[in-house]
Design a protein around this nucleic acid. Structure first.
Lengths: 150, 150
DNA sequence: CATTATTGGTTTAATCATGCAACCATTCTT
DNA sequence: AAGAATGGTTGCATGATTAAACCAATAATG
């Protein structure tokens, strides 16, 4: 592939995010981490990913600060992969992907999972709002470039 | 690579979304489309992507219903790629990625772009809420499986 | 109108990434 | 102590991506 291009230097925050989690497996690993998976073997079984690739992806996610490697709670010498605070900030990304999938990629009566409020059992909702609280869509927004230092 | 695994059959909506837009280039193309780019050459120049890959990705995005190929507004025979309604529903995904990048992948005073309300110039905000309106995080949610037909 | 440049690709060859299977060291389990 | 599970590593085959050359059709220019 002649070295995939890095977007680290891109001034667009979306591009930088994709540089970190934009490859084929990373977000699926993060999804499983949100689902409570922590162990190498769990990810491997859940995703059916090749072990060498999983090794490399986990390593990258740890290096990026999205996962961290901590001793298992049960005291052994084994380690487990846990979402860091930064990793948990990917929650909106996961919810947005989920919402898009629910809306467009399932047949009307097709079986699928839903993300619900643990307290009430009701589905959660995601919305994008202006400062005054009104919902806002892509056509009502613009991207502006903030000069350095502001 | 022995054929990348398809997630079409996965019951998880996030996985299905990633099946459609989860590869290295697709979301970057969508980002550029949100930025107003429409022509093959514009995407090619903006992304520095190989032309054959761009051809294939655009074709896939059209086939998925995220982009559509319409005659240019200036009446020529040339075509342009535009976001469909379904494509515009990826807006929250883009905003979530952007927000994550802003928060974690830029140095404090580093230059970056910001998404603002066109009317007021104020940054937009994204939040995830329970039905009663209170903000909700990953630890207050669970994924439940909806049986077929509900 | 003839020429040239631009657009939007296709094709080919080289290179990189990924998957699979085999292997291995360490740690649990019994 | 023996066997199984965990968490990898290594090597090879193959698919995916790239860069570069090429090309047909359209648009711009003299």
């Amino acid at each position: 592939m002649v070295a995939r291009k890095s977007l680290k230097g891109d001034y667009c925050p979306s591009a930088r995010s994709l540089d970190v989690i934009g490859d084929w497996w990373s977000l699926l690993i993060v999804r499983d981490a949100f689902d409570g998976l922590t162990r190498f073997g769990e990810f491997q079984k859940s995703l059916g990913i090749a072990k060498n690739i999983l090794t490399e992806r986990l390593r990258t996610l740890v290096a990026s600060g999205i996962l961290e490697l901590v001793p298992t709670s049960e005291g052994g010498t084994r380690m487990e992969y846990r979402l860091t605070a930064m990793g948990k900030d990917l929650f909106p990304v996961m919810v947005a992907l989920r919402q898009f999938g629910e809306r467009h990629l399932f047949a009307p009566a097709e079986e699928h999972s839903v993300l619900v409020d643990r307290a009430t059992g009701q589905p959660v909702q995601l919305d994008i709002r202006a400062q005054d609280g009104r919902a806002i869509g892509p056509d009502e927004t613009v991207i502006v470039k903030v000069p350095e230092g502001e």
